[in-house]
Amino acid sequence: MANVKWAVDPTHSEVQFKVKHLMITTVTGYFNNFNVTAESEDEQFGGARNIVFTADVNSISTNNEQRDTHLKSPDFFDADQHDEIHFVGSKYEQVGDDRFKLHGDLTIRDTTKAVTVNVEFGGIVVDPYGQTKAGFTVEGKISRKEFGLTWNAVTEAGSVVVSDEIKLQAEIQLVKQA
């Protein structure tokens, strides 16, 4: 069995999250610094394993400096104490032609929970520079409160300011390592 190693191509990848604000609009945020590594049995990403994702909490961006500072504070991610979000995949399960479920453990702050995300495999291609690349669209949902991100406020009318459900979305391009 071959062992093909893969690493993220950060210039062709993005990691974002979406959260309801005041329950009427959605705010999108990004992690600008992140890493993904994986291994597979072959160049077609068969037998994928050892899938690891990390994100630098201090690289969070919602296009609002005041909000970003609040998200890094102890009210949310507590970046001074927990500067990294960590995911370790435990099972990459095929559920359709190009559809997979990636099961694993997500750690935010000091809390680790089992999560499952949906993965659409975009395929394998060799770029103009001779690099073998694999593309993926990843989507999932988590409860922020399950990870200790419990801060909230209530409006005068009784609406919550920030929803519990966080939608995760990522476009990931991996490069086969020499």
Results as ranks from 00 to 15, higher is better:
Gln173Glu: 15
Phe147Ser: 07
Lys101Pro: 01
Phe45Gln: 02
Glu146Ser: 13
Phe100Thr: 01
Asn58Trp: 09
Ala153Cys: 02
Pro74Lys: 10
Asp110Arg: 04
Glu65Ala: 15
Phe76Thr: 07
Asp98Thr: 13
Ile124Glu: 05
Tyr92Glu: 09
Gly29Leu: 03
Ile108Asp: 05
Ile124Ser: 07
Phe136Leu: 06
Ser159Arg: 10
Thr137Leu: 14
Trp6Val: 03
Asp78Phe: 02
Ser40Trp: 05
Asp56Trp: 10
Gly46His: 09
Val57Ser: 04
Val19Thr: 07
Val154Ile: 15
Glu93Asp: 13
Asp164Phe: 12
Phe31Trp: 07
Ile60Arg: 06
Val162Phe: 12
Thr150Val: 15
Asp75Pro: 00
Asn32Ser: 11
Lys141Cys: 11
Arg109Thr: 10
Ala134Gly: 05
Thr69Phe: 11
Asp127Gln: 06
Glu39Gly: 02
Val117Cys: 10
Asp42Cys: 01
Arg109Phe: 04
Lys141Ser: 13
Lys176Gly: 04
Asn32Pro: 00
Arg144Met: 13
Thr11Lys: 06
Asp83Thr: 03
Lys72Asn: 08
Ala7Pro: 00
Tyr92Ser: 08
Glu146His: 11
Tyr30Glu: 10
Glu41Lys: 06
Arg99Ile: 08
Gly148Ser: 15
Ala134Ser: 14
Ala7Leu: 06
His86Pro: 01
Glu65Ile: 12
Gly123Leu: 03
Asp68Leu: 12
Ser13Glu: 03
Pro74Asp: 15
Gln94Arg: 06
Arg99Val: 07
